[in-house]
Simulated assay, not measured.
Amino acid sequence: MVRRYLGFSVDEWDRLPWWQQRLYVEELDAELSGPDQGDGQSSDEALLAAGFRIE
């Protein structure tokens, strides 16, 4: 589900390190759980805080 949501092909997803896949899965879970279930950060904010570039 995360792969499709983010638009990754199977090969692109498989090339990601395990920790990055886990980050995406956890952030999508928090986003889909609703605002009162997450930590208050948007997924973009969380990715920026983790050191990722968003284009």
Rank of each mutant, 00 (worst) to 15 (best):
Q37L: 07
Q21M: 05
D29R: 10
W13S: 00
M1H: 13
V25M: 08
V10I: 12
W19P: 06
Y24F: 13
D44C: 15
S9D: 08
W13P: 00
S33W: 06
I54N: 05
E31G: 10
L16N: 01
R15M: 03
I54C: 06
A49G: 12
R15I: 00
R3D: 04
Q21F: 02
W19E: 12
V25G: 02
E26M: 07
M1G: 13
E27V: 09
L23E: 06
Y24M: 12
V10P: 07
R4L: 15
A30G: 07
G38K: 14
A30Y: 01
P35N: 11
G7L: 03
M1T: 10
R53G: 05
G34F: 01
E55M: 13
F8P: 02
R22Y: 04
A46G: 02
S42R: 09
E12S: 05
V25T: 06
S33Y: 08
R53F: 14
E27C: 06
G34P: 02
S42N: 05
S9W: 03
G34K: 06
E27Q: 11
I54Y: 01
D36S: 01
P35V: 10
D29A: 03
D44A: 15
I54P: 01
L16V: 05
S43F: 12
G40H: 01
L48V: 11
A49T: 14
Y24D: 08
S42H: 08
Q21W: 06
V10D: 11
Q41S: 12
R53K: 10
E12C: 02
E55L: 11
P17L: 02
Q37S: 14
D44Q: 13
G34V: 00
E12D: 13
D36G: 03
R15N: 07
A49Y: 05
A46N: 02
A30H: 02
D36E: 06
A50E: 10
E12F: 02
W19I: 07
D14K: 03
A46D: 06
P35T: 08
L47F: 10
D36R: 01
F8H: 03
V10C: 04
D14A: 03
E31V: 13
I54T: 08
A30K: 13
D11W: 08
S9R: 03
F8T: 10
L28R: 15
L48S: 09
W13D: 00
W13K: 00
W19G: 13
A49E: 03
P35G: 12
D44V: 13
M1K: 15
D36Y: 00
L47N: 07
E55V: 10
Y5T: 13
I54S: 09
G51T: 05
A46L: 14
I54R: 02
A30M: 13
E55P: 14
V2D: 15
Q37E: 12
F8L: 04
F52V: 14
D14R: 09
G40N: 01
P35F: 06
L48Y: 07
S43L: 15
D44E: 15
